[in-house]
Design a protein around this nucleic acid. Structure first.
Lengths: 193, 193
DNA sequence: CTTGTAAGTGGAAAAAATTCCACTTAGTAT
DNA sequence: ATACTAAGTGGAATTTTTTCCACTTACAAG
């Protein structure tokens, strides 16, 4: 998506993997609490400076932690089999997108919530959001050619915020099915011609 | 809204006001950057411990900074004149709510964004969100009695996230009018019977 | 092989958030 | 007035994030 800069040096790539593994281990062992940059660096056997060079900041690290799932997800809607991928009618693809998104939220909501709120606007600045947004814009454009596609794509994505999902499921006790039904209802309302 | 605990001691109330004034001054002078707890405490002539005792954490402080506006806003939709307050038909009230919300976002988006992302789920845990949500639930219930009101209220509120507003207006260059039109379109789609 | 150099590194230092607690004080009860 | 106590206070200490830079290293070109 971004122009590929020259590849990382071998030692840098090695450190990136070690840091990612350390972060995943710490998260598995102590949840999002124990996930301090110093602890991650220590476990990976590097200095904290390296964490910053590889990932920019805590947002970048948490982002990288969910990135393999994100990559699969993007492949799914960009070139996977229908109805998520190309081939199905746009409204079906939107529903499939919503379902796949909720799958991810169910699997990684807490970590995604940290990634999204690591800094104000972290979610909207991310490449993942841009990719999701672009995809939804193109689908909505087919269904409602005269509407403001960019705005509607945002309106479809915001209810899929990880923090909201955690709140609905944990704080408010809504079932997964109820959330899914709600999402589909909104997709239908917003995108149907 | 919460059961009133015994009132603050006079000196504590004085410090609360001093801290709030200091925070507002620093924000006016240096934006959200210069808004460190130490600087706030120093300008108010207190120790940092007092900031924590009065406001809990940074989220609490930023929240308090936007609270007088929030209070006016809640009075507006709870007991103000129609169409925002009681008296107008529910769909009109929803549109008025959306407009009033955008007014606030235009005035304080940056600060609201800090408050909302001060911690994961800060937005959804806040009393303000609960009040907005309850209000929307009651309006949506009148329009779409068979729908999932709680979910739809969330779906109406998420596109009004401060971080998204900043992104749309500043990063993406959307005009205020365009955002307003988008919001009204979504309200219509989601809430119309 | 050398060598040049851009990329990478660790960890000390700075900045900021948060906790903690010995001391002070406002308000109340006697 | 006096004494009591729950609330409040300041700031040092702790924790974590973030910046910075002198030193090291991978690797490409000769």
């Amino acid at each position: 998506m971004a122009g590929a800069a020259r590849p990382e040096r071998a030692d840098a790539a090695r450190n990136r993997q070690a840091l990612l593994a350390a972060a995943r281990e710490l998260h598995a062992e102590h949840g999002t609490e124990g996930l301090t940059l110093e602890a991650v660096a220590a476990r990976a056997g590097t200095g904290v400076g390296t964490v910053y060079r590889r990932f920019g900041d805590l947002a970048g690290l948490t982002h990288a932690m969910v990135d393999s799932q994100e990559y699969e997800f993007q492949r799914g809607f960009l070139e996977g089999p229908p109805p998520l991928g190309p081939g199905a009618p746009p409204l079906e693809r939107l529903h499939a997108f919503a379902d796949a998104f909720v799958d991810r939220l169910e699997a990684q909501a807490e970590l995604l919530a940290v990634a999204e709120t690591a800094s104000p606007r972290a979610r909207y600045r991310s490449g993942a959001y841009a990719a999701h947004h672009a995809h939804l814009v193109s689908l909505v454009a087919e269904l409602r050619p005269d509407a403001d596609h960019a705005y509607l794509a945002d309106a479809l994505l915001t209810p899929l915020e990880a923090a909201l999902h955690v709140h609905q499921r944990q704080e408010r006790g809504m079932s997964e099915e109820r959330v899914r039904a709600g999402v589909h209802g909104v997709v239908d309302r917003i995108a149907r011609p």
